[in-house]
């Protein structure tokens, strides 16, 4: 076999990647400034968790809404996930006594979702083979709802949700999300080099975050990595939108490609988790 087989045609990948990164960077910077609009208002663990829960809820709302629509809401229970995600999103925006119950429900329903998706895969022809992991109900996705609930609950209990506890949980969540991105990008054969980004940066950021309790130095190192991960969460939908454009019919064929193309609302999960982790960092950067 020749060392390199010539490609019959090419696309301007680098331009697209740099473009997406630039747009995401500008959007991220603007958001960051808006968030820090009150001078010196340091990002607190509570604010980080709450923001993380909000972003995760929004992502789950859109993602499960679209994916369960693809599944034609065949099982009536499929409306629960987007409904609950909407509720958790609401609870992150307003103060309400019902919040702990909603967050708790999200935590439980997410776990049940994982179990239900596993059961579904298991009964398909092929069982837990790669094909079903690629195309059947995703194993990891419902965990994002649990995570939204967990972050929401944690934000209500700063005494329990201490930074040194939030960090490893966020790290684990980052790893899980990276694993899911990895699985789906493997399904796409990493055809675009930027598809490697979510399987490289977030795991490193996760490692640094998990270890940030060890020393303030590590925590300081975790910050840029988490900021990068957050940016990925913003750049992802832009790249995925380009991916839809790359499919047959492009955006004109949106009614198919919103379902079959790369999922628009999936990448912001990285943003949500990174925000929660970033909230925990200042305390960890100061300790000792």
């Amino acid at each position: 076999m020749p060392a390199r087989i010539p490609e019959p045609s090419r696309r301007p990948l680098l331009a697209v990647g740099l473009g997406a990164a630039t747009v995401a960077g500008v959007a991220g910077a603007l958001a960051w400034r808006w968030w820090h609009r009150s001078e010196r208002a340091e990002i607190s663990p509570t604010r980080g968790l709450r923001a993380g829960a909000a972003v995760l809820s929004l992502a789950v709302l859109l993602d499960s809404g679209i994916e369960h629509y693809r599944g034609s809401f065949e099982n009536p229970a499929m409306v629960i996930a987007p409904t609950l995600a909407l509720a958790t999103l609401g609870m992150t925006a307003v103060e309400d006594r019902a919040a702990p119950y909603v967050f708790g429900a999200a935590l439980a329903v997410g776990a049940a979702g994982v179990a239900f998706h596993s059961y579904n895969i298991g009964k398909r022809a092929g069982g837990f083979d790669m094909l079903n992991l690629f195309y059947a109900a995703p194993l990891g996705a419902p965990a994002a709802l649990s995570l939204a609930g967990l972050f929401g609950l944690a934000a209500e209990h700063p005494d329990v949700a201490k930074p040194e506890r939030v960090a490893p949980v966020a790290a684990l969540a980052l790893l899980g999300t990276a694993a899911e991105a990895g699985l789906l990008h493997f399904r796409g054969a990493f055809q675009n080099p930027f598809m490697f980004a979510p399987v490289t940066l977030p795991p490193i950021a996760a490692a640094a975050t998990a270890a940030s309790g060890i020393s303030p130095l590590v925590a300081k190192a975790a910050r840029p990595l988490l900021l990068g991960t957050a940016l990925l969460g913003i750049a992802g939908p832009i790249l995925h939108a380009y991916g839809i454009h790359r499919n047959m019919g492009g955006w004109r064929n949106w009614s198919q490609m919103i379902l079959q193309g790369p999922p628009l609302p999936a990448p912001p999960a990285f943003l949500g988790i990174a925000l929660a982790a970033l909230g925990a960092l200042p305390a960890l950067e100061r300790t000792r």
Binding site: E7, P8, S9, R10, R11, R187, G188, A189, Q191, N192, G243, R246, N247, M248, G249, N253, Q256, Q260
Partner: peptide, 13 residues
Amino acid sequence: LSAPRGMAHPCVY
């Protein structure tokens, strides 16, 4: 194709 290749679109079934 199950994923894009250069200018070629993936399958739309």
